[in-house]
């Protein structure tokens, strides 16, 4: 499935964005491609709400009407990976927070355009986020990197895409 991934900074500014596509899979149709950033930004409110909840993944009393849509997964004690946080016409949106509250967000699209909801594989999506989190920490450790600035390194980009290929668009 094609995915649109972004890291969003403290001022809702994009720090990094990428589309993960694969020759054997559908790509985002042009009209959707343009919408992705908006879909994603619409989910940020939900993410910010979940950010301060003690059990963000228990879902049922999340206080938002999207709670029941979120996926269940085993490690309910974690509050970095938030699982599926939102949906939009058959697209699923997942979220992850770093310790410095960088927002990692992704729009997952299904293969077919039949509007059926995308099934998110929490195990691989979570490992994808954790691996990217590590790359982010390495970025931050560089004294020349300024918090909340875009990550322009081609190596970072290459690594993230390699992870996506391994874990998401297989």
């Amino acid at each position: 499935m094609p995915c649109y991934f972004a890291i969003i900074g403290a001022k809702d500014n994009p720090i990094y964005e990428a589309e993960f596509t694969n020759p054997h899979l559908n790509q985002f149709p042009p009209e959707l491609k343009e919408l992705n950033p908006f879909i994603l930004h619409a989910s940020l409110d939900i993410l910010e709400d979940l950010q301060w909840q003690t059990h963000p993944q228990s879902g049922a009393h999340s206080g938002t009407n999207s709670g029941f849509l979120r996926s269940r997964h085993s490690s309910s004690n974690s509050n970095c990976y938030l699982g599926k946080i939102d949906h939009f016409y058959g697209l699923a949106i997942t979220g992850y927070l770093s310790y410095g509250n960088m927002k990692f967000v992704m729009v997952h699209s299904g293969n077919a355009n039949n509007g059926s909801p995308v099934v998110v594989d929490d195990v691989s999506v979570k490992s994808f986020y954790q691996e990217v989190h590590e790359l982010y920490v390495k970025t931050l450790m560089n004294p020349f990197y300024t918090l909340n600035e875009p990550i322009t390194s081609p190596v970072f980009d290459g690594r993230v895409r390699a992870l996506a290929k391994k874990l998401l668009t297989k």
Binding site: A18, E19, F156
Partner: peptide, 27 residues
């Protein structure tokens, strides 16, 4: 693929015929 993210350009696709690791070139 060795150009990295440019926020003025927005998200780039992983192009089909690319080797996955653009980092190889840099390294």
């Amino acid at each position: 693929g060795s150009t990295g993210y440019d926020y003025t350009m927005g998200p780039q696709q992983t192009l089909p015929d690319l080797p996955v690791s653009s980092g190889t070139i840099a390294a």
